[in-house]
């Protein structure tokens, strides 16, 4: 392991350890907030991998969040699965859905791909809304017995879900970081910087994109399952919400800095800061987010982290190989 990778590994381990101990020193509301930040950080890093690296601008990631959530509920309610065991299964199902959609959506030229992913998400949402045994449009709740199966006391249950969100957030962060530093990551970086050149250098663009799309779908499904394990309730509107699971995530990444892992993290933190500040102004914060996203795209495409990198030369998660 190179020196920079070692530093990152130590840094992430320390942060994870501190956050894992949070139940003993942080309040209930704080735990919920950190858990939510973790889930959004994971979604942001995943969307960034998709759009910022593989050039697949999806506005339909809510398909996989909702699918993951519904999968967990179905496993638990219909098949008496322990909730925690349903999480990997949710990833599997979401990944399979990604594998079905990818070959179809990849046929759409350029920006039409984005709209196509949206149609895919709408289709999945409509299918779930049409199934009466899943509560159709009204959705369903996890039965008490299943909730009790997570952990016996409410406090322990909240801790377990918190740890799960922490594990998934840090897991996605570490996993994507390792991926970007790997040989496959090199192909992704080439794809990000110049798709045409990457193709002529022997990077198989179609398959690289396919595996990225599939992997991101699976991980997004896993995140979705844990999000709804915490909420204990799911409906088509909540599960497949464009605003909650894709729009906000996109603005996080754009404002933080697309094409950089740090950008996704910084963007997540900025979003939560903004939300806490503008909590009294209703939908204004969405308008502010939209405006900020547009301004970033017009004037500084690499986002806030791009500015930091240029001005200060910082890099928290070095992925460049040249200087090592």
């Amino acid at each position: 392991m190179s020196k920079s990778a070692l530093r990152v590994a130590i840094g992430l381990t320390v942060i994870t350890a501190i956050l894992a101990a949070a139940p003993w020193f942080a309040g209930r509301a704080d735990l919920r907030l950190i858990g939510e930040i973790m889930s959004y950080m994971a979604l942001a890093i995943l969307w960034n991998l998709l759009a910022g690296y593989a050039g697949l601008v999806s506005v339909g990631q809510q398909a996989f969040v909702g699918l993951g959530g519904y999968c967990l509920f179905i496993c638990v309610i219909w098949f008496d699965f322990p909730p925690l065991a349903a999480v990997p299964l949710a990833a599997l199902v979401a990944g399979a859905a990604g594998a079905i959609f990818a070959p179809l959506l990849f046929r759409l030229e350029g920006a039409y791909f984005a709209v196509g992913t949206w149609v895919a998400a709408e289709t999945v949402a409509l299918i779930f809304a049409a199934i009466p045994s899943l509560g159709a449009g009204a959705g369903m709740s996890l039965p008490t017995a299943a909730v009790k199966a997570i952990a016996s006391s409410r406090e322990l249950r909240e801790w377990t879900v918190y740890w799960l969100l922490l594990a998934i957030g840090m897991g996605v962060l570490g996993g994507v970081y390792l991926l970007i530093r790997s040989k496959a990551g090199l192909a992704l970086m080439a794809l990000r910087d110049n798709p045409t050149a990457a193709g002529s250098l022997g990077v198989d663009i179609w398959w690289t994109r396919f595996w990225t799309y599939l992997g991101v779908a699976a991980a997004t499904g896993a995140v979705g399952s844990v999000i709804f394990l915490q909420k204990l309730r799911i409906s088509p509107d909540a599960g497949f919400s464009l605003n909650d699971w894709t729009a906000i995530v996109i603005f996080m990444v754009v404002i933080g800095g697309i094409g950089r892992i740090e950008g996704a993290i910084v963007g997540t933190l900025i979003y939560f800061l903004l939300r806490e500040l503008l909590v009294d102004y209703g939908t204004i914060y969405l308008i502010v987010l939209g405006l900020a996203g547009i301004l970033v795209m017009m004037f500084s495409r690499s986002g806030l982290w791009g500015i930091v990198e240029r001005r200060l030369g910082w890099s928290l998660l070095p992925t460049r190989r040249l200087r090592e």
Binding site: A111, I250, G290, I294, M297, M298
Partner: peptide
């Protein structure tokens, strides 16, 4: 105009931003 070029991303994201702004501004 400022966002057109080789990169497909900026115009998509800018119009996506417009969508969110219009929806929320109209409902306000």
């Amino acid at each position: 105009e400022r966002t057109l070029g080789e990169d497909l991303l900026p115009p998509i994201l800018v119009t996506f931003g417009c969508a969110v702004i219009i929806q929320n501004a109209l409902s306000a």
